[in-house]
Amino acid sequence: MTTSAFRWQRVLLYAVLIIGSLLCLFPFYWLVRSSMMDLAQIFEMPPKWIPEPFVWRNFIEPFEQLPFGRYFLNTLIIVVGTLIGTLLSSTIAAYSFSRMKWVGRDKVFAILLTSMMLPFAVTLIPTFIGWQSLGLINSYAPLIVPAFFGGGVFNIFLLRQFYMTLPRELDEAVFVDGGNHFTIFTRIILPLSRSAVLVIGLFTFLNTWNDFMGPLVYLNDESKFTLAIGLQQFQGMYTAQWGVLMAASLIIVLPAILLFVIFQRYLIEGIALTGIKG
């Protein structure tokens, strides 16, 4: 490859990346901008790009109007519970569906997959009645406990796809050394699929963090509400306090962004498989 062609490729690469990221940052920029404006400024035409004056009050108001600290804690409880459950149970299940051979495995997996195909709108009520008969409405159980039972087929399926790409010889080497499935799972598969596990961790975090419908339906007491419900409270029946809504969204989004910035490093660091495959 000639150096000039190589340079052109780099230029093109950066051009695409820069234009693309600008396009993607735009909605976020708009969110930041609007969070520091009052209502009149937000809708001014042609639009203002920089707030003038900066309305910092928008960031104080969410805390004055609602118990945001309490909501934060509640959300954290649900998120941590769901994360633990999902990571534990989906990795184990995915291992079984990808690296163990048992009668009816693929059929069972196909049946599990169907759980994503029926729209939530029609399963909502039967599920709700189920939790109610256990007396668990207005508790976090309906939001957390399912994570311990499989942690969502999406996650199992994703991990299964990754586990299946890992070479079989790895398992066999362990068996020859007298190890068992549990050793393979913890010593080989989990470390090698770290990026995939992190991906489902990230997704689980974000889904739970932003989930609105679940907490809304299952929680009745305001003291148990989550951040996503709090956000909705700024959209009143008659008017929306857009500036405050945007500021509150920003406050809620920030931890998620921070998490991603930390997390994405692991996608490039990677683990050299080369040595094992040889």
Partner: peptide, 25 residues
């Protein structure tokens, strides 16, 4: 041995499906 061990590893997911999905379905 994988035959029953496999079922066991998948048990939480299968149980979860039966309890939380199959009933409502």
């Amino acid at each position: 041995r994988e035959n029953w061990l496999g079922w066991l590893f998948a048990a939480p997911a299968i149980l979860g499906f039966i309890i939380f999905v199959f009933g409502p379905m």
